[in-house]
Design a protein around this nucleic acid. Sequence first.
RNA 1: UUAGGUAGCCAGAUGGUUACAUCUUGUGCGUAAUUGUAUGAGAUGAGGAAAGUCCGAGCUUCAUAGAACAGGGUGCUGGAUAACUUCCAGUGAAGGCGACUUUAAGGAAAGUGCAACAGAAAUAAACAACCUAAAAUUUUUAGGUUAAAGGUGGAAAGGCGAGGUAAGUGCUCACCGAUAUGUUGGUGACAACAUAUGCUCUGUAAACCCCACCCGAAGUAAGAUUAAAAAGAACCGUUACAAAGUUGUUCGCUAGGUUCUUUAAAAACAUCGCUUGAACUGAUUGGCAACAAUUAGUUUAGAUAGAUUACCAUCUAAAACAGAACUCGGCUUAUAGACUACACUAACAAA
RNA 2: GCGGGUGUAGCUCAAUGGUAGAGCCCUAGCCUUCCAAGCUAGUUGCGAGGGUCCGAUUCCCUUCACCCGCU
Length: 116
Amino acid sequence: MLDKKNRLKKKKEFNYIYKKGNAFFCKFFTMYVVKTKYPFSQIGFTVSNKVGNSVTRHRIKRLMSEAIRQNLNLLPVNNYVFVARAGSEELGLNEVTNNFLYLLKKSGLLKLNNEN
RNA sequence: UUAGGUAGCCAGAUGGUUACAUCUUGUGCGUAAUUGUAUGAGAUGAGGAAAGUCCGAGCUUCAUAGAACAGGGUGCUGGAUAACUUCCAGUGAAGGCGACUUUAAGGAAAGUGCAACAGAAAUAAACAACCUAAAAUUUUUAGGUUAAAGGUGGAAAGGCGAGGUAAGUGCUCACCGAUAUGUUGGUGACAACAUAUGCUCUGUAAACCCCACCCGAAGUAAGAUUAAAAAGAACCGUUACAAAGUUGUUCGCUAGGUUCUUUAAAAACAUCGCUUGAACUGAUUGGCAACAAUUAGUUUAGAUAGAUUACCAUCUAAAACAGAACUCGGCUUAUAGACUACACUAACAAA
RNA sequence: GCGGGUGUAGCUCAAUGGUAGAGCCCUAGCCUUCCAAGCUAGUUGCGAGGGUCCGAUUCCCUUCACCCGCU
């Protein structure tokens, strides 16, 4: 799990990010991004009710958080929400991280980070 | 040996690195102090069903928590339990070669309803059968007796056999069944035995209903604390009419009630409720058992976007179903694989 | 977490416990020079599993899927 300060918690924040954020899609996940005031980034994970069991849903959340936690230094400072879509039940850790990297490249945030 | 029956247990293990939650604690920063913040150490950290939410309780609130009706639930007997649509032991019935299993099992003679099609007839009696007489010539009419066989149907008037009869019929008899009475046994459901009655009176109550017993409602997102709040607006009532009040209707009850806006760092994104509980483990005693009593020991998750991870190695053929959210007692459903016990059962083989 | 509701033909719906129907759709034929419209005929079934009953879409129990409300 992430540290407490890096988690998104409140329902208002989630709704704000859903409304105002830029969305990027791939096959298994969608990503919403919004800029923050704070010097650290806050990240939230959601899995919809239609994906599998509560056990598998919880497992996907943990995999996503682990993938973010290992690559926290690469992330530019923003607020993120990652949503898992149907079909993501059978992914492993490496595939999740690859998907996330693909999303970040697609959004153009990672390139800037590499140039700096 | 094979196929079963019953009862029960486990729910991958070990090691390494790593992440998170709670609690305890050390150090640094900061503060008048608490809170805070950063970083270390230690301990603990999800099931047999945590699930479904099908029942029953605790706890909290609702007017003082009341009454009647409606509505709902349960339904063989005795016991267990805080309580129960639960459990245990029995009775009856059904199934199985058997060990054994299953069982919402009161009342149809209180009343109402329904029973399609078929069949003469469906809850009451004649498609017909037999006999007698007359006509007439293989049929009709009149009278009488009876309920056997036939086919229909889920169900057909106690069953089967013998005697008897014009043909038949509990008309008579034996056996079985039924009903009533009595005796004995059992706490009881009921069972056994004896005697009597030839014994019309279907099924359905998981159709309405009757009888007996039980049930107020909502749910921790209940609710409480921090506060001493202040100001304003709207509606209803203050004439017990009317309105509001935690299911429906009526009675009874409550005198103020409901909603909204603004201000203050915050009236929630805070704290409590929240985990010591009809708790768990072991022993002894009582009981066939469910369970109870006594005694010794243990303290065992408590989050609020919501904690048990990720990777690797070894064992292994492969690891099922599945994630606490106030707490207990049950029920139901899902479930890979491994294991244990039995004077258990059947078949086959050998002695 | 708590509460409520619905499952019938490809779609929208109906039904007294007696063996399931209507409209649109689809198929074939008729009509028309051809198409459309119209007429005739036909195909496709009660979410799943048990029980009560002679008999269940209907009654009872369990279960699955979907939808809605509180938050």
